[in-house]
């Protein structure tokens, strides 16, 4: 134990403070992750939860040999890109507008926080009722306006986009809050200099706001991409992956394998693929962010 005594005091203090946090993380995140990894490489299922021999990559092969896994992966990528783009663009617009508002800003923020504070299941149920094709208020309003009813969740061509719109509605407020905080923290000197040089508002946004906001924006995008890749509640409540397989995203695919197929091991394997994709994406985004700095 001499080596502990030799350690720098500051280093020891640092670890002493970090240890409770690391311990909590190890219990809350580490244990389930390790357990899921063990499951993904074992033959254990809900029907045979006893001794589970190591079976290598068989679960991964089984999952990846299913065409629906690739369909779900493609759908997840499309869904995530569309929703994050929507959340970011609309969120940035609202954040910019709010940046100019001073007196009523707290009221706007209070309203914007409501969707964020709601559980996705409640949001899905509410929207499911609003969009009910025959008795829902959305189609009623369309009819009042002389427009035809829309089959929001029952049309294979429309269901995914309806789900994406609901997701954007809910998640956008988080983006607004983060970007608004980022905008409020930007220094004013460059804008004053630009004003003196006669730069237009658009030029100021393009050459000053956007570059300075980039770190906050990148982090927001990464967080939201991770969120969207994991989307499960919305398809579960709204469509059960249908019509057909048109809203079957990867997390729903993993759920089906685990709980309907009674194969926790294959469900874990699918979840690990999802985790690897998200990790790879996060690494790429952060390395890009570092390079730009």
């Amino acid at each position: 134990m001499q080596w502990i005594a030799n350690l720098d005091r500051e280093w020891k203090t640092g670890w002493a403070f970090a240890l409770p946090g690391f311990s909590a993380l190890a219990i809350v995140m580490g244990f389930p992750l390790i357990y899921a990894a063990l499951l993904a490489f074992s033959s254990q299922t809900l029907l045979h939860p006893e001794l589970s021999p190591f079976i290598g990559l068989a679960n991964f092969a089984s999952v990846m040999g299913d065409q629906r896994f690739w369909d779900a992966t493609r759908l997840t990528v499309v869904y995530s890109v569309v929703t994050v783009a929507g959340e970011f663009l609309i969120g940035l617009g609202i954040a910019l507008l709010l940046n100019r508002t001073v007196r009523t800003k707290p009221i706007y923020f209070a309203i914007l926080t409501i969707p964020m504070a709601m559980s996705p299941v409640s949001v899905s149920l509410i929207w499911r009722m609003l969009l009910q094709p025959n008795l829902g208020i959305a189609n009623h309003l369309l009819e009042v306006g002389g427009l035809p009813r829309v089959d929001w969740l029952g049309s294979p061509a429309l269901a995914l986009w309806t789900m994406a719109a609901i997701d954007i509605w809910q998640q956008m407020s988080f983006v607004v809050l983060i970007l608004a905080a980022g905008l409020a923290a930007l220094p004013q000197d460059p804008y004053e200099a630009a004003e003196v040089d006669g730069a237009s508002s658009l030029q100021q946004f393009w050459y000053i706001t956007l570059p300075m906001l980039r770190p906050v924006a990148m982090i927001t995008v990464v967080i939201q991409l991770i969120n969207e890749f994991r989307t499960y509640d919305l398809p579960y409540v709204l469509t059960k992956g249908g019509p057909g397989t048109s809203t079957e995203v990867l997390s729903f695919f993993a759920y089906r394998r685990a709980f309907l197929g009674l194969s926790l091991n294959e469900g874990s394997a699918a979840s690990f693929v999802l985790l690897l994709v998200v990790l790879a994406m996060t690494v790429v985004f952060f390395s890009l962010l570092e390079r730009r700095r």
Partner: peptide, 15 residues
Amino acid sequence: QQGALSATLDDTLRL
């Protein structure tokens, strides 16, 4: 009905 592809038992009962 329109929306039959996303309808559940509850939806049909209401209709």
